[in-house]
């Protein structure tokens, strides 16, 4: 959301603010913002500083040895630990696959929903529903009634086609988790793309029709370029949320079998809840933060460029 606000700020040389504002005046103007700012600092930055402090400590919940300073050893462990690297890669794979699949489905559904047909309102509501279901509830519904090897609906439906008792959550664990992520996030993508479609000026489409462009050409040359910023926004927001996926992993596969579905949030959770290694988990958390900042910086810059281009054009 910050992205959008940032970009709506007029360029600094637009001259909205008079230059001659006293220092006191500037602080007075900021005053109403301070409570919110202080709140944000308290709930986000102080925990982060505490995490940073813990990351240099050897601190185990299951040992009576008091927490003590260990220098960089927690970080050395993080960087040499194959489990951390694997979960990092898995997080990237899960997020990228889910976001791209959700976006493709989202575009397809949005294109369909953009047409007029009987009962469109009902269909729209139905399509949005998965996004409104609590992630934990969705994960449980998928894990047991849908995908269970013995009682699952999917196996029941596939049985006539010779598919027998497939243990989806063991054999296709990663794919199952990704399917649930896609199922939950497709509506969000649909909504964003639909908003884009509805803001498309009808006269350009008409002009294309008059010029004799087919449906495919119209989509490629007009609709898609128009949708691009919407798609990119959807991908950015979807990635920010999906990279944090925890509910589905915890409740459907518990990170397994083996470590097949252990992503970064689940790895951190395990470091705390199974290994009771507070220092190690904190260090892994800090490394995650740094990586996220790097990725986010690049992503946001890219988007800044996209939107600048849009502004220049509009």
């Amino acid at each position: 959301m910050t992205v959008l606000e940032d970009l709506s700020v007029p360029p600094r040389d637009a001259g909205v603010l008079p230059r001659a504002v006293s220092r006191r005046e500037r602080w007075l103007r900021r005053l109403p913002l301070l409570p919110a700012l202080i709140y944000v600092v308290v709930v986000t930055q102080i925990p982060f500083v505490v995490t940073l402090w813990y990351s240099f400590q050897s601190y185990f919940w299951n040992s009576t040895a008091p927490a003590h300073f260990t220098g960089l050893s927690n970080y050395t462990t993080v960087f040499t630990n194959a489990a951390f690297r694997d979960s990092l890669v898995r997080s990237v794979v899960m997020t990228a696959t889910a976001v791209i699949a959700a976006m493709i489905l989202g575009v397809a559904l949005a294109l369909l929903l953009d047409r007029k047909f009987l009962g469109r309102g009902v269909v729209r509501t139905l399509i949005i529903t998965p996004f409104l279901v609590m992630p934990a509830a969705a994960a449980l519904v998928w894990a047991y009634p849908m995908l269970d090897a013995n009682y699952g609906l999917l196996n029941y439906l596939l049985a006539p086609f010779g598919v027998n008792h497939v243990a989806w959550l063991s054999v296709h664990a990663l794919a199952s988790v990704i399917v649930v992520m896609v199922w939950q996030w497709t509506p969000f993508m649909t909504l964003i793309v639909l908003a884009g479609l509805q803001s498309q000026p009808p006269d350009t489409l008409e002009a294309a029709k008059v010029d004799g462009a087919g449906a495919l050409a119209t989509f490629r040359e007009l609709t898609f370029p128009h949708l691009r910023p919407y798609i990119e926004l959807g991908i950015l927001l979807g990635s920010i949320y999906l990279v944090n996926t925890f509910d589905a992993v915890r409740l459907m596969t518990n990170g397994g079998p083996g470590t097949n579905t252990t992503n970064l949030p689940f790895y951190l959770y395990q470091q705390v809840n199974n290994a009771f290694d507070i220092g190690g988990a904190a260090a892994a958390g800090v490394v995650t933060v740094i990586l996220t900042i790097i990725v986010a910086t690049f992503a946001l810059r890219m988007f800044a460029r996209v939107f600048q281009f849009e502004e220049a054009r509009g």
Binding site: T2, V3, D6, P11, R12, V40, T44, Q45, P47, F48, T51, I240, V243, N244, F246, L264, P265, L268, Y269, Q271, V272, N273, A281, A282, G285, T288, V289, T292, I293, A296, T297, L300, R301, A304, Q308
Partner: peptide, 29 residues
């Protein structure tokens, strides 16, 4: 548009995301 005024906010936004991640990992139940 220069990127300079943008950066602290980027860091802020990314920091929030990261803090959320860390909080999710630590505050289980």
């Amino acid at each position: 548009m220069s990127h300079l005024p943008f950066r602290p906010r980027v860091l802020g936004a990314a920091g929030c995301v990261a803090a959320l991640l860390a909080a999710a990992a630590c505050s289980s139940g």
